[in-house]
Computed example of a mutant assay.
Amino acid sequence: MTPNGRWHLQGSAEHAYSGEEARQLLRHRWDWANQETWFENDAGRLLGVVTNGERAMVVLLDGDGDPGEHLVDPRGEGSSGGYRLSNGQADSYEDRDTVAFDTAAQAVAYFIEHGTWPSEVTVQGERAQERS
């Protein structure tokens, strides 16, 4: 078991994902035209990823009502669209509030395995101090 507890797809505790399995799942879900993925751990924490294929918004919530935190790209400029949510809504995000897809997938894998973000990503949120 990871230090963060078992992580599974939200609403389905059938399979606990390793970090590498989660990274691969994110790539496959994009291939299957499913752009939004939510993982949940045994303590009710939520780890969400929505992608447009090139960039991804990665969010961590400690539960309903938590302001959460998300990965940011301090050098990101402009905005990108094409983020389709599971409810059909298409969103655009500032590039500063998203990261490259591969960075997102690697960060999610690391978080699931270690219970903390890798040192090379920047996290911003109500609970987290921004760090580089």
Results as ranks from 00 to 15, higher is better:
G5Q: 06
W7C: 07
W7Y: 14
H8P: 00
H8V: 08
Q10N: 13
G11T: 09
G11V: 07
G11Y: 11
G11F: 07
G11N: 10
S12F: 02
S12K: 03
A13S: 15
E14H: 08
E14D: 15
H15N: 05
H15S: 06
H15A: 03
Y17K: 01
Y17E: 07
S18C: 02
S18K: 10
S18T: 15
S18E: 12
S18W: 01
G19Q: 04
G19I: 03
G19E: 06
G19K: 08
E21P: 06
A22W: 03
R23K: 15
Q24D: 11
Q24W: 04
L25Q: 03
R27F: 12
H28V: 14
H28C: 05
R29M: 14
W30I: 08
W30M: 10
D31A: 11
A33L: 13
A33I: 02
N34I: 13
Q35W: 01
Q35P: 03
Q35R: 14
W38A: 05
W38V: 15
W38D: 01
F39A: 05
D42V: 08
G44R: 06
G44S: 10
L47W: 05
L47H: 05
G48Y: 08
G48M: 09
G48F: 02
V50H: 01
V50A: 03
T51S: 15
T51E: 03
N52E: 02
G53E: 10
G53S: 09
E54I: 00
R55F: 02
A56C: 07
M57I: 00
V58E: 06
V59F: 06
V59K: 11
V59W: 12
D62F: 08
D62I: 00
D64H: 12
D64T: 09
G65A: 03
D66V: 08
